[in-house]
Computed example of a mutant assay.
Amino acid sequence: MKDEDIIALLGDESTHEQAFRMILKTYKEKIYYHVRKIVVDHDDADDVTQETFIKIWRNLDKFRGDSRLYTWLYRIATNEALTFLQKKRKDNSVSIDDNELLVASLESPRSDAYLDGDEIQVKLQKALLELTDKQRVVFNLKYFENLKYEEIAEITDTSVGGLKATYHFAVKKIEEYLTNH
């Protein structure tokens, strides 16, 4: 299904449910993996993805077409993921700054399509855990999603210049981590 077809359905309130089903079918997996790269943990990513789609459902009538559909969806998902991380830090139920549990989970053998246990993949994931939330989001969108800076700027509501600097610092941190570990 093309975004244009979904947007056409959003133009009529009577077809919002159909549009939402199409959004879910088209973007559920992409949104999950986008969120997963930010929050890392599978269960957390599931929760955030669910909250993202609830927010999308509640705000379908607010999509005006000023941005691309995927940009709007990714902005909601990114904001939900970052809000989740902030809440998790605030609740301090598990210190997100203490990455030992996440690193241990990366090293343990498991059947997970996202983290396959490959040594290079594990090293990269560990390096990503060293980034700030914003650096991780920008790096993921640029490197893994292959988005242009202008698209990332729409999603993150940040200037292109700021994004380039953030991406540059993220790459440097990752290079440094991979060199030293």
Rank of each mutant, 00 (worst) to 15 (best):
M1A: 12
K2L: 09
I6K: 06
I6G: 11
A8M: 06
A8T: 09
L10I: 00
D12A: 10
E13C: 08
T15S: 13
T15P: 04
H16E: 03
Q18L: 13
R21H: 07
I23E: 11
L24N: 09
K25D: 10
T26R: 09
T26V: 03
K28P: 00
K30F: 03
I31E: 01
Y32G: 05
Y32K: 03
Y32E: 02
Y33C: 07
H34C: 14
H34I: 02
H34R: 05
R36I: 02
K37C: 08
I38E: 10
V40D: 06
D44R: 05
D44M: 03
A45M: 02
V48Q: 05
T49L: 01
T49A: 04
F53L: 03
F53A: 06
I56D: 13
W57M: 08
N59K: 12
D61C: 04
D66E: 15
R68C: 02
T71W: 08
W72C: 00
L73E: 04
R75P: 06
R75Y: 08
R75A: 14
R75M: 10
I76S: 09
I76P: 05
A77N: 02
T78N: 13
E80C: 13
L82T: 02
L82M: 12
L82H: 01
F84I: 00
K87I: 04
K87L: 14
K88I: 01
K88F: 01
K88P: 03
K90E: 15
V94Q: 11
D98Y: 01
D98Q: 02
N99C: 09
L101Q: 10
L101K: 13
L101W: 08
E107L: 13
E107H: 12
S111I: 11
L115G: 07
L115N: 14
G117K: 02
G117P: 02
E119Y: 07
V122L: 04
L124P: 04
L124K: 14
T132M: 03
Q135A: 04
Q135C: 01
R136G: 03
L141G: 03
Y143A: 15
N146E: 15
Y149F: 15
A153N: 11
A153Y: 10
I155C: 09
D157C: 11
D157Q: 12
T158D: 11
S159W: 05
G161N: 03
G161Y: 00
L163C: 00
A165M: 01
T166Q: 11
T166D: 10
Y167Q: 13
Y167T: 11
A170D: 04
A170M: 06
A170R: 06
V171I: 12
K173M: 06
K173Q: 10
E175L: 10
L178P: 08
T179H: 13
N180T: 14
N180V: 10
N180W: 04
H181K: 13
